[in-house]
Design a protein around this nucleic acid. Sequence first.
DNA 1: GACCAGGCGTCTT
DNA 2: AAGACGCATGGT
Length: 272
Amino acid sequence: MEICSPLVFDANGMDLAATLECGQTFGWRRTKENHFEGVAGQCAANIWQQNNTLYIQPLSLAAQNADFWRHYFALDEDYPTLLQRFCTHKKLAACVEPYAGVRVLHQPFFDTLLSFILSQNNHIPRITSLFQNLRLFYGTELAPGLYACPTPHSLAQKTLEELIPLKAGFRAKYLLDAAKKVDAGVVTEELLAPLPDAEARLLLQNIAGVGPKVADCVLLYSLGRKRVVPMDVWMKRAMATLFPHGMPRAAKGSEGIAQQYIFCAMRDKTLF
DNA sequence: GACCAGGCGTCTT
DNA sequence: AAGACGCATGGT
């Protein structure tokens, strides 16, 4: 690919490392402090941050599109103001403050669906490794060593036997069902877009291996449904501890985003 | 070698 | 409606 200069963005308070390492995406590898290499959709890139400036060196043709990255990193959303609304509540502010640089990404749909199918009964390092191998074994190369997710159509052609090398265990059959249903047009981004959250969740759950948790992660981390709250047993415990009477009013309307900050705080054990 | 990991499906009460 | 349990795999 023809070499072009890096794209430059105002980070608007984003913390690149916190955003990419908080467990909402599994497509990036840290090469050095504040430098990441990876793939989102058809976009391969090196990304780094200096102070409040974000640099993106495209490594594939699609990655030259600045609008893709603005949307991916939610740079066109006013997070500083959004977070101020949460911080009117003391306990929520304590969760948000250390992770104010985290942005909830807008990730490509199929990539997100597959990565959270892999996430079930699993932990972040292995999810990352499984997702990387999925792209390496069955995807197409975008740049040296960087592979795109297989398309729904190409993955749908595979057999369970062909997925054995991935070592995804019981999740392998779920990957295939997701590919087949998306490829056949049974569950697509276009069908989900106009649906209310509850109905979109149910449509996603038609895919084998997709339950409420995985569905909600796709809704929040890919489709921008900011009110969706991906719940797991640990999140429920954290919420019950922090907010025994429910989420504070200040966060209403953005519960899912608020949850992301609580989850970061919980994972780092800063509050629990 | 037991136990765990950001679940889900199935089979029970 | 809610709880127990199996599921494949790799790490600690």
